[in-house]
């Protein structure tokens, strides 16, 4: 145990200094010989991705940047549906060109380079924590505008020319039902509410919409919000080609309303306002009832994602109390599913 910990610490020190050196040589190429790196720190570290914050300082001028990097710089398989960092950086560039608020990408690095598989983007000021965005007075104006801004941003994402996109996975509603049902059945932890939700969703499939670029995780937590509202759309790793209603519904899933259940969009706004702005920005005109089926699928997916996180504990892969505890959040999605079914039948 002690030896293992020691190795981890040494490995982290090594990678810290190695990353700083690699960033400095990149910065000197792009910002000039006087450029130096300051304040490098790791922000978060999932198993699939590292995020580092740092500054490039040249002649007293500071650029605040973010490095997104594969763990240890090595290309590893991210979660089964996640796209590569290189594709993510290409998507950010496409979204930027389409007028979606995203961080600009400054550099992309291949596996085997000094930085490993990674890219550098600008650091955007603002808040990502849902509860703060919904509660703090500084976001009061933002909250009144976010529904419209999210509608416009989603319309812009869904309008991106698919010819220009990297080769993304395709996944429509039925693909996702099949995928999550297989995962759920493999756990062999039967939950009658999920059975009813699967059966109901299969029986009430909506007519398909023309396929578009779907962000795949568009919700509070993955959006940077400042005092004026939506400042940036982050976390594109679940992007795919699919149904536009999936994105609109995902931000409506009650799990992402952070207690503000009366505001269907993210806990801050009404769906009519989002759909109006979506159509005004060139998106298909949808009615709130067009989103219901997808919201139910969203709650079911999140419930099974919670089971996946608990499975990390159950299988012995991650002994943390947090992974164990998340298994007791699955019932949140069950009550949401029942509340939705009650309205639907």
């Amino acid at each position: 145990m002690a030896i293992h910990l020691f190795r981890v610490i040494v490995a982290k020190m090594g990678s810290n200094e190695q990353i700083e050196r690699a960033l400095e040589s990149w910065a000197r190429r792009d910002f000039g010989d006087a450029a130096r790196i300051a304040d490098l720190k790791r922000l978060s570290g999932g198993a699939s991705q590292e995020t580092w914050a740092f500054e490039v300082v040249v002649a007293g001028k500071t650029s605040r940047l973010i490095l997104r990097r594969a763990p240890g710089g090595e290309a590893v398989a991210r979660s089964s549906e996640a796209i590569t960092l290189r594709m993510e950086s290409m998507l950010l560039a496409c979204a930027d060109a389409a007028g979606v608020p995203v961080p600009g990408v400054l550099g992309v690095f291949e596996p085997g380079s000094d930085l490993g598989e990674s890219f550098i983007m600008r650091r955007i000021d603002g808040e990502t924590i849902g509860r703060k965005i919904l509660r703090d007075a500084v976001y009061e104006t933002a909250r009144t505008q976010l529904s419209e801004q999210c509608g416009a941003a989603l319309a812009a994402i869904h309008a991106i020319d698919m010819e220009k996109l990297p080769d993304l996975p395709r996944s429509d509603g039925m693909d996702q039902i099949r995928k999550y049902e297989t995962i759920y059945r493999n756990f062999d932890l039967p939950r009658p509410v999920f059975e009813l939700a699967f059966a109901w969703l299969k029986e009430h499939q909506p007519a398909p919409q023309p396929a578009v670029l779907v962000h795949g995780d568009f919700r509070l937590g993955n959006l940077i919000v400042d005092a004026q509202g939506l400042a940036s759309v982050l976390d594109w790793e679940l992007a795919h080609i699919g149904d536009p209603r999936e994105d609109i519904a995902w931000i409506c899933v009650n799990s992402w309303r952070f207690g503000q259940i009366e505001n269907r969009v993210g806990g801050f706004g009404q769906l009519d306002a989002l759909l109006e702005a979506y159509a005004a920005a060139g998106g298909t005109r949808f009615e709130p009832r067009d989103i219901d089926w997808w919201e139910m699928l969203g709650s079911l997916k999140w419930g099974i994602m919670c089971m996946i996180m608990y499975e990390a504990y159950r299988s012995g892969g991650d002994p943390s109390v947090e992974r164990a505890a998340i298994g007791r959040r699955v019932s949140e999605t069950e009550i949401d599913l029942l509340n939705l079914l009650e309205r639907a039948v």
């Binding site: 009658p192 009650n254 259940i261 007791r328 959040r329 949140e332 009550i335 029942l338």
Partner: peptide
């Protein structure tokens, strides 16, 4: 299913907004 889920949530997450709804 509703009664069972309400009982489960009263243990798991008694403050969850969906339970109150």
């Amino acid at each position: 299913l509703k009664t069972t889920t309400i009982s489960q949530l009263a243990i798991d997450q008694p403050n969850y907004s969906g339970l109150k709804a």
